[in-house]
Design a binder for these strands. Structure first.
Lengths: 124, 124
DNA sequence: CAGGATCCTACGCGATACTG
DNA sequence: CAGTATCGCGTAGGATCCTG
């Protein structure tokens, strides 16, 4: 067992997996990023309708976190009624291919994984 | 706005993102998979020490879920004291490149993201 | 050694109501 | 329109003790 392994992953503050990937691994982040990638510039309510089942609060929270991480840009137009648009930043766009690969893998293996779960359940 | 997007992601039972990626997107799964990839065959306590901060319960839960999804294989040696070893399955290994890409992206962008978070915090 | 059983807390997440 | 405020629930996750 390599001792460096231990340090590499046990230092919580500097573990990119826990600091970065857990942020995009929550319930809505990947979904929002995917939609912004496919649709480009979107208003708050357009994203809301696109996902449908997300609550306003969670969409707001998710967008704020993505904005905080510099993955999404928030553009406010000072008009009445307010018009706020969201789009991917350069950094956000650079993440998209990896998400797509992951989603592709999930789709490919979905049925096999469901089978495995059933078998596992039967042996428990 | 593409209507198929909505259907594609709102059918919870058949949404691979929520059924598969949420499974590996939780707190410990990617970490365990990464460690098993780098170290090969590992015993329960070796993984435990490698991560350090994970509780026994969560390691157990995580390994069971990965085993259930067919990503990790559990090998029991009928000896006393017990010896149980874990390793990636073929399916698990096929996921590794995508995880590595994601981790690579996270490492590359870690500092910039931390900066963004600080700036965002200051403006709030 | 490799966990299982229990108990408990924190937080993700949702529903509803309200506002500039 | 684009959110915030508030309340409440379920579950992920953690601490501790126990066992074959």
């Amino acid at each position: 067992m390599d001792e460096k392994m231990l340090n590499k992953y046990s230092d919580i503050e500097n573990c990119p997996i826990r600091n970065v990937l857990n942020h995009i691994g929550n319930k809505w982040s990947m979904l929002v990023l995917s939609i912004l990638d496919e649709e480009g510039l979107l208003r708050f309510n357009e994203i809301h309708k696109a996902i449908g089942s997300i609550s306003q609060k969670m969409l707001s929270t998710t967008l704020k976190r993505l904005e905080s991480d510099g993955l999404v840009k928030r553009k406010v137009h000072p008009v009445i009624p307010p018009r706020v648009e969201y789009e991917l930043t350069k950094r956000g766009k650079s993440l998209i291919p990896h998400i797509k690969n992951l989603v592709g893998w999930a789709v490919e293996n979905f049925n096999d994984i469901k089978d495995s779960r059933l078998k596992f359940e039967r042996l428990s």
